[in-house]
């Protein structure tokens, strides 16, 4: 007897439930189309790590090397990522582990940039009085650089690079000197007003080590934010970074970011 034969035939109730789910699924696909594809792609990033977690295998940081991809064209500036991050990580008001910038470029090359409340509440329409020829949103976060200045110059080693490639802060060691905040070219660090230690994006380390996605990736309704793992065979994000014209922020700083941008315009710094 093989294992399929062991299964009981599906009951009428199960059948109806399943049919209802499929119908609902079909309706959602019809309604949201491309967005859902992005959702399923994002969810695909979850599977391998989830499998590891659900199999009861302890998390091994040496078996992962994470990277992050932002598809600028897909970002609609809704701010769901910023809100999700703030909720998930208890980020204090007026400080940001991630934020979204809006760029509006006029025909004559004038650039108007803003990020009201880090884009947390979305963006109100804005009239610049200029002939705007392109406009886009750019999500930002810690770039988890391979050559990160913040780790290099932390005087007590409280900022460190984990084996799976993330830049993290040991809150119990940090003396709150703020040197790392000064050293980050991307403005992604701040001194937490309550703990008085350096704080920053951890890519939701508490989630990803359990096989979940970072909160911002999970919350993004358009798939503009994607999370990958170069150590996983067939990882789609790794494949896109390897084969598409991606860019990094401030390459002249030679910090080797692990956060890549698809379709990044040159006005972005």
């Amino acid at each position: 007897m093989n294992e399929y034969e062991k299964e009981e035939p599906a009951s009428r109730r199960d059948f109806l439930c399943g049919a209802a789910q499929q119908a609902a699924g079909a309706a959602i696909i019809l309604a949201f189309g491309e967005q859902l594809v992005a959702f399923s792609e994002a969810a695909a990033g979850e599977t391998a790590a989830t499998a590891e977690a659900s199999a009861g295998v302890p998390y091994d940081p040496l078996k992962h090397r994470y990277l992050y991809l932002i598809d600028v064209a897909k970002c609609i500036g809704c701010g769901a990522c910023v809100r999700a991050c703030a909720l998930e990580n208890d980020v204090p008001d007026n400080h940001f582990r991630t934020w979204v910038e809006r760029y509006m470029v006029s025909r004559t090359g004038e650039v108007t940039t803003d990020s009201p409340n880090g884009g947390k509440d979305g963006f109100e329409p804005l009239l610049t009085g200029q002939d705007i020829t392109k406009a886009f949103f750019v999500p930002k976060l810690c770039n988890h650089c391979s050559q990160s200045p913040c780790v290099q110059l932390c005087p007590v080693g409280a900022s460190y690079r984990s084996p799976d490639g993330l830049i993290l802060v040991d809150e119990k060691r940090c003396i709150g000197c703020g040197y790392c905040v000064q050293a980050c070219p991307y403005g992604s660090r701040f001194i937490h007003p309550e703990t008085h230690t350096a704080s920053k994006c951890t890519l939701c380390y508490h989630r990803i080590t359990k096989g979940m996605l970072p909160a911002c990736v999970q919350a993004c309704p358009t798939g503009a934010r994607r999370f990958g793992d170069t150590q996983r065979p067939g990882d789609e994000v790794t494949e896109i970074v390897a084969s598409s014209p991606v860019r990094i922020l401030k390459p002249e700083m030679n910090t080797e970011p692990n956060c890549y941008y698809l379709g990044l315009s040159q006005e972005v710094r």
């Binding site: 007590v156 060691r173 940090c174 003396i175 000197c177 703020g178 040197y179 008085h196 230690t197």
Partner: peptide, 25 residues
């Protein structure tokens, strides 16, 4: 410096456990 540090009580960490790639250490 002590007035400035977020955690002056940990300031001796710079001396006890310096991170040698840091100029500040």
């Amino acid at each position: 410096l002590l007035f400035h540090l977020g955690h002056p009580e940990r300031s001796l960490n710079i001396v006890i456990t310096p991170h040698f790639t840091s100029a500040m250490a």
